[in-house]
């Protein structure tokens, strides 16, 4: 990693580039790829001549703006969650998917959609959120939980087992619910097409709490990088650190998957890119990984609308399409 974060990088140039990539993606996604043929000028018109009867302006304000904001914040959350996972387990392959949060959310959402038992009584979003929490807590407790002798490998094994169980339940639900299967499948690929201001108001407060919690662990994660025993001897309470990190990951991922479905690979790519661009200090890495995640989801969402217009391609497919070659690249370069 040291080699990649070349000393030649100016300390201000990289963050500036990163921020402008994100800003550019955000602005273009406000008007890009619209059947209404929106233009940058329409954004300007909103500022200088707001008109509540103009359909173009209303589309930008009521549909595009919340969608772009949610895309960025979800990307940020996933980027941060991925970094936390990798920092905690000291395993470069760890990602929020490992915690079975996505598969838990998918499982309960699918059971809710087919009207299985009492799940059907819950609102769909609540069921999804509970599923995400359930998956995460299950992996966390099977993986050693709060025990002091628990290790990262055990957590990973628990993740694989719980993921397998939950995905098979989801598949069973899909077979039973043949008619609604395609709408469930669409959600399972991760999509931002149903985002509105209501979603934003659900997303930001929980995200804020979880992000504050995440940033409070950065010093602990820096020391944890030296090994658990070393961190322990330097006065870090590993159990307490683990609890806070897991809680933050759980919240960040659960709220994101509830609103947009599983958007995969972001939590895996963003931390690696962040480490390649910056140093290994989690105080810097956390916001960097978050911003990279935000830019990634924002641009992927923009791309997802342009593949077969006017139909929406789920954004999760795009992130997976970008993520897979990147992952192979990491493996070939021996960075893992």
């Amino acid at each position: 990693m040291k080699i990649l974060s070349s000393a030649g990088h100016s300390k201000t140039l990289t963050p500036a580039l990163l921020l402008s990539t994100l800003m550019l993606g955000f602005i273009i996604s406000l008007y890009g790829q619209s059947e209404f043929l929106l233009q940058a000028n329409d954004l300007w018109q909103i500022l200088i001549a707001p008109d509540s009867q103009d359909i173009k302006q209303q589309v930008i304000l009521l549909l595009r703006l919340p969608r772009s904001l949610v895309a960025c914040l979800i990307g940020f959350n996933l980027g941060v969650a991925g970094l936390l996972m990798q920092g905690l387990t000291r395993n470069p392959l760890a990602s929020p998917t490992l915690f079975a949060i996505n598969s838990g959310a998918a499982c309960l959402m699918a059971l809710n959609s087919i009207g299985f038992a009492f799940f059907s009584a819950l609102p769909s979003e609540l069921a999804t959120f509970l599923g995400a929490l359930l998956g995460g807590v299950l992996v966390f407790s099977l993986g050693g939980g709060l025990r002091s002798d628990s290790n990262a490998l055990r957590l990973i094994l628990a993740g694989i087992a719980v993921n397998g169980l939950l995905s098979s339940l989801t598949r069973a639900a899909l077979i039973i619910a043949d008619d609604t299967a395609y709408s469930i499948l669409h959600w399972l690929s991760g999509s931002l097409s149903e985002i509105d201001w209501h979603s934003w108001s659900q997303l930001w407060p929980l995200s804020l709490i979880a992000l504050l919690l995440a940033f409070s662990t950065s010093r602990g994660l820096n020391l944890n990088a030296l090994g658990e025993q070393t961190a322990n001897s330097l006065g870090i309470n590993i159990t307490w650190l683990r609890v806070r990190v897991c809680l933050a990951v759980l919240l960040l991922t659960s709220i994101s998957v509830t609103l947009a479905g599983p958007i995969v690979f972001v939590g895996l790519i963003a931390p690696h890119l962040a480490r390649a661009l910056f140093n290994n200090n989690h105080l810097v890495l956390l916001p960097a990984s978050g911003l990279l995640g935000a830019a990634l989801v924002c641009w992927a969402d923009l791309l997802s609308r342009s593949i077969i217009p006017p139909a929406e391609t789920p954004v999760g497919i795009i992130t997976a399409l970008i993520g897979t070659p990147f992952f192979i690249f990491l493996v070939l370069k021996g960075k893992l």
């Binding site: 619209s34 059947e35 209404f36 359909i55 589309v59 395609y182 509105d196 077969i308 006017p310 139909a311």
Partner: peptide, 15 residues
């Protein structure tokens, strides 16, 4: 050619 098109509110407004 696609028989079924997933549609966002924005596309419904345009359609």
């Amino acid at each position: 050619n696609e028989p079924y098109l997933q549609t966002s509110f924005e596309q419904l407004l345009k359609t």
